[in-house]
């Protein structure tokens, strides 16, 4: 093989691998990304049942109902709209009424959000970043729900729970 041919083989294989990678990435981006949505989005832009998305907001105080066999129901609110959520499994340590939560799952035909993952992630304001941003947009930031717990410090913590396989 001449020097030129060797170089061609090298460049050709590099381009082939890159092309495969680009195809894989584009394919995966089409199928496996999940959008973050607020309850208002759910109400306003009717999302099709069966499409996976993340729903974030505050757990509406007084709506948490624990059923048998680890089934729980609660409502997620952004101050404007509420969405009913059903989940089966262990809730994360930091899950509390009135505090921020992000859940992942699909809407069923009755408009109930069937979550298979519940994340109670938060920073020092006890609020997930996405939820805080969404609430700021809605004009419901802090003043309405300023139940900031005592001495939260500079650090943040997060716990999460997942039903089924992660």
């Amino acid at each position: 093989m001449t020097r030129k041919q060797r170089r061609l083989v090298l460049i050709g294989s590099a381009l082939a691998v890159l092309a495969v990678a680009v195809a894989l990435v584009l394919n995966a981006l089409r199928d496996s990304i999940v959008f973050f949505t607020t309850p208002t989005d759910v109400v306003e832009k009717s999302i099709q049942p069966g499409k996976r998305f993340r729903l974030g907001g505050l757990v509406q105080p007084g709506t948490l109902v624990k059923g048998g066999n680890l089934a729980v129901k609660f409502e997620i609110t952004d101050g404007k709209s509420n969405v009913k959520v059903a989940y089966q499994g262990i809730l994360p340590d930091l899950f509390r009424e009135g505090q921020g939560v992000v859940s992942e799952g699909v809407l069923d035909a009755g408009g109930v959000f069937k979550a298979d993952t519940v994340l109670a992630k938060h920073d020092e304001n006890y609020m997930p970043k996405e939820v805080a941003d969404a609430l700021k947009k809605q004009g419901h930031w802090k003043d309405d729900y300023a139940a900031k717990p005592e001495a939260a410090g500079g650090a943040a913590a997060a716990t999460s729970a997942q039903g089924g396989k992660p």
């Binding site: 691998v17 495969v20 990678a21 894989l24 990435v25 394919n27 995966a28 981006l29 199928d31 496996s32 990304i33 999940v34 959008f35 973050f36 993340r54 992942e104 996405e130 941003d133 992660p166």
Partner: peptide, 28 residues
Amino acid sequence: LYPLALEALAADKISVGAPFFNLTFGPL
């Protein structure tokens, strides 16, 4: 970084999780 770029440019919030990486990282 795609979620960060998308959030900065289009204000869409997405999460890219395990399925994405299983479909791209795995085959490579």
